[in-house]
Simulated assay, not measured.
Amino acid sequence: MRTELITIPTGTTPLDGAFHWPEDRPIRGAVLLFHGNTMNFYTGAPRFLPPVLTRLGLACLAFNRRGHDILSIRDSRAAEGAAFQLTDEAIEDNRLAAAWLAARGYDAPVVIGHSNGGMLSVPHVVAHPKTPCLVLLSAHAGGRQNERVSQIGLFAGDRFAEIKAQAEALVAAGRGRELIFLPHWWYVTSAEAFIDRITKMPFTLDLAPQITCPVLYVRGDQEPAEHYPAEKFRDRAGGPCDVEIVPNCDHFYKGREAAVAEIVAAWLARRLGLSAD
């Protein structure tokens, strides 16, 4: 495949990414890749899927949302990253990336999202009904799930009520971008991002009936079904939904990247009538 580093402008921080396309065969379609929470376009699924998908003739756009990594800088010492992520911005970032592809002639790309990117894929596809296929890679349930997530030792852990009160006080005092340490992944967040996270995320299952395109929902067997509800999504989806549970597989598909890529590529090849030949 060939790769071009690209930048997509926004009203604030631009989105950096990579556009991959097949070098030895015609482009037969396109894919939007949405990274997971605190991740980026060059790790995880946005990294290991393009070499496989381009063999099917699919051009792939992987890009950073404004909420990428945890904390970062670019051309100054002003901080950016997932510590400041807001749901409305993330949804807009995905829309802007789709518009970038549409301007190049790909107005109905396949959408593939991992984890938080999978959750964000669902409202994106609802807003883009021409999407031919949706692949959810360990998409979390969204909505007000974070107190439950804390109960299994993530996010704010057993300090959820304490940190929630701290964040609310900072936001009320006009100090919403002030950082708060979290006891667990993802370790640090701004007060306004914490409140956004527990109040504004869409519910994946509530939106499932509005998804009418074919869906593949992948989950590792080491992931709890309560938080990555593949079977419930299948039962509520407005169109066909296939579920694949990958054995010996964690949330990040560590050591199982090839197996997940094969599952995704084979499913897309069937659904889109593509071949790697």
Rank of each mutant, 00 (worst) to 15 (best):
P132Q: 05
G44H: 02
R47G: 01
P109F: 01
D93A: 06
G57M: 03
V126T: 10
H114I: 02
L71A: 12
L86P: 00
Y42C: 02
L56R: 05
V52S: 12
C60P: 00
V149T: 15
C60W: 02
A127D: 08
R65G: 06
V149N: 14
D69P: 01
R47M: 12
E80T: 06
S115L: 07
G157A: 13
F160S: 07
A90F: 11
G117R: 11
G67V: 05
F41C: 06
P50A: 10
T54W: 03
D158S: 11
A141N: 06
A45S: 07
T87D: 07
V135G: 00
A103E: 15
W100S: 08
N64H: 10
D158Y: 03
G176Q: 13
V52T: 14
S150Y: 11
G113T: 04
R47K: 12
A156P: 03
E168H: 15
S121E: 10
Q151E: 14
L120I: 01
A139L: 01
N94C: 12
D88F: 06
E92K: 08
S138Y: 04
R144Q: 15
P50W: 07
F160M: 04
V52K: 09
N40W: 10
R77E: 14
L49H: 02
R66V: 09
L120W: 07
G67F: 10
V122Y: 06
P50G: 09
S72H: 07
V52M: 09
A103H: 14
Q151G: 13
Y42F: 12
A62E: 11
T87Y: 11
L182K: 08
E80K: 05
R77C: 13
A45Y: 05
L101F: 02
P132R: 07
V171G: 04
E92M: 12
P46V: 00
R47L: 14
D93W: 10
T43D: 13
P129L: 00
R66Q: 13
S72I: 05
P50F: 07
P183T: 09
E168Q: 15
F63V: 04
A79V: 13
L49N: 04
D93R: 10
A79C: 11
A169H: 15
G113W: 03
L136G: 01
A108L: 00
K130C: 08
A78V: 13
A83Y: 09
G105V: 02
L136D: 03
V149R: 15
Q166P: 07
A99V: 14
A141V: 11
K164N: 15
V126C: 10
A139D: 09
I73Y: 12
V52Y: 09
K164H: 15
F160G: 04
R55E: 14
E92T: 13
